[in-house]
């Protein structure tokens, strides 16, 4: 059993990689080849699809837009969540448990429920079709998650650290920035990763809140699919490129990711 143990993860990973391989395979084919012949690898290998994406502004702007609002959202979420998570991990205060659960309920709100009201709210504030609108809207589910993960990590830091610092005459803000934050960098990294991830993969709200200027790449893909026929090769290439940012950030947090997925609670 032990000796064959490696088989299970291997089969599982192959299962995970097959659809990704197929997407890559298609992205190097012309649409004609995709529709005309069936082959396990590209016969007429072409980079035309990728070239089109990197040279056509409607395409590459999609990536820039997505990355912009994702980064803004990550910064807002982590910054706001840090003091809140500290409060939840160190103090008891009136209504703390209810507040914590209320925050979590927003992680449970189906985006489909909020799509239309969000459109009206952000239109009324004249923020429709801006990066900041999407970044703020994604706070709905990213802040609760950030608070939850950070609280888990912070509860792992012994309270003696705080007490010693206060005895040494540190004020709260100075202690927080100079001592506490450096002691949970791993937790912050993981939290940032999660905010990045959930903002990057979400589409329903991002699509609802944008039209031209801040249109995310995922929306460019769906609109292209419906307007200019079905350019499969191009669509596959665009899809393949959306995997890259995630793969890069995941490499940086790989050692902490397991703990992060457990929301710091292991």
């Amino acid at each position: 059993m032990r000796r064959l143990g490696w088989l299970i993860p291997t089969i599982y990973i192959i299962f995970l990689l097959l659809p990704i391989y197929w997407l890559l395979n298609m992205s190097f084919k012309t649409t004609n080849e995709i529709l005309g012949t069936f082959s396990l690898w590209p016969i007429e290998f072409t980079l035309a699809n990728y070239k089109k994406i990197f040279t056509d502004p409607t395409w590459y702007n999609g990536y820039i837009n997505s990355l912009t609002y994702v980064v803004i959202n990550t910064v807002i979420s982590v910054t706001a969540a840090l003091p809140a998570a500290y409060a939840f991990s160190r103090y008891r205060f009136l209504g703390d448990k209810h507040l914590f659960f209320w925050l979590l309920t927003n992680r449970m709100a189906p985006p489909a429920v909020f799509a239309l009201p969000f459109f009206q709210l952000y239109s009324a504030m004249e923020l429709f079709d801006t990066h900041i609108a999407v970044a703020l809207a994604h706070c709905l589910f990213n802040i609760p998650l950030a608070v939850w993960i950070l609280e888990g990590f912070m509860s792992g830091v012994p309270k003696e650290l705080d007490e010693t610092a206060y005895i040494d005459g540190y004020s709260f803000p100075r202690f927080f920035v100079k001592i506490f934050i450096p002691s949970i960098t791993a937790g912050i990294g993981v939290t940032a990763f999660f905010c990045f991830m959930f903002s990057w993969v979400e589409l329903l709200l991002a699509k609802t809140l944008t039209s031209v200027v801040a249109k995310p790449i995922a929306a460019t893909m769906t609109r292209t699919a419906s307007t200019s026929g079905y350019e499969l090769g191009l669509l596959a290439a665009a899809g393949a490129l959306t995997i890259i940012p995630g793969a890069i950030v995941i490499w940086f947090v790989r050692n902490y990711i397991a703990k992060g997925f457990a929301l710091g609670r292991v």
């Binding site: 599982y12 995970l16 197929w22 997407l23 990057w200 589409l203 995922a218 995997i243």
Partner: peptide, 27 residues
């Protein structure tokens, strides 16, 4: 860990599109 986490980081509509072209009976 990195390979296994990959599917989690793909935008959801790309997941749908990817499975569409993966599962279509002709292509």
């Amino acid at each position: 860990l990195v390979l296994m986490a990959l599917p989690l980081l793909i935008p959801w509509n790309v997941v749908g599109a990817m499975w569409n072209i993966f599962a279509l009976p002709d292509i």
